[in-house]
Design a protein around this nucleic acid. Structure first.
Lengths: 133, 133
DNA sequence: GCTTGAGTTTACGTTAACGTAATAGTAAGT
DNA sequence: ACTTACTATTACGTTAACGTAAACTCAAGC
């Protein structure tokens, strides 16, 4: 059972709001390896999941080369954990980076809140005595 | 009092671990506007602070053009808040983006923790019956 | 007077991550 | 048979964010 549904390239492009070119490029870079039916690419759920990971990686500012490393680690962890110790080390490095990034984001968010407060205050002050616009 | 100490370009390059070229490039792009003594650039604490903001922006994946927008907003908010409403809107957009990014990071962190668990388990399993390496 | 060190400008080079034709095959609808 | 829709490959173009090299100025130290 479970007919393992397949996706076309435009399915994924639509779903993730990226171009066909982007998907082909990712394949060219070895980030995904869809099956072929003749020349046409066919994507499994697994390909889809990988694509999702790729895009998430991009959003947090990783380069494709780094994303590939991570994807490879996933593979590695799946196959066996022949080098789990090294993997653990790499994971902890990545974790440190991410936590740093989180702190940056929090800092920026805090500053935004401050600025918002500033704005509201100015607006309150101005409103009532002048409303030129 | 408070002699307003000035920084040279290499001071900042060293402090933030970036190249001279990078700093000059940021000036070229209008992100900072150091004073000149003759031809030489001289940076105030304010320039330094801006540079810090720029680099933080980069770390969270913003483009220089976006960073410039934000810096401009800071100026805007400082001068007066002539367009505070628009500013508020922009801030809230940016906030949404950042919160999304935070969610991404949290998701990745969670996955890392999972992978780490997986690794430890494998290592535990392997350790004791085989330690070839 | 010459080198050394820090700074400058000008300008071409580079890398990543796609964009954008141009050209062509293939299946479905009319 | 013709169009339309979707797919493919090949290959040159583009943008951001600097790198890098060449050639110059200018003050300090020996």
């Amino acid at each position: 059972m479970s007919e393992e549904r397949l996706f076309t390239i435009s399915d994924l492009a639509r779903d993730f709001d990226i171009t066909l070119r982007t998907i082909r490029f990712y394949e060219e870079q070895g980030l995904i390896e869809p099956q072929r039916e003749g020349r046409q690419r066919l994507f499994t759920h697994r390909d889809r999941a990988r694509l999702k990971l790729i895009l998430r990686g991009k959003r947090i500012g990783l380069a494709l080369s780094e994303i590939r490393e991570i994807l490879d680690l996933y593979e590695l962890a799946r196959d066996e954990a022949s080098q789990s110790l090294k993997l653990l080390q790499l994971l902890s490095e990545r974790k440190k980076q991410l936590e740093e990034q989180r702190r940056d984001i929090d800092a920026v968010l805090a500053e935004i809140v401050t600025l918002e407060g500033h704005c509201r205050q100015v607006i309150d002050t101005v409103t009532g005595k002048d409303a030129t616009n």
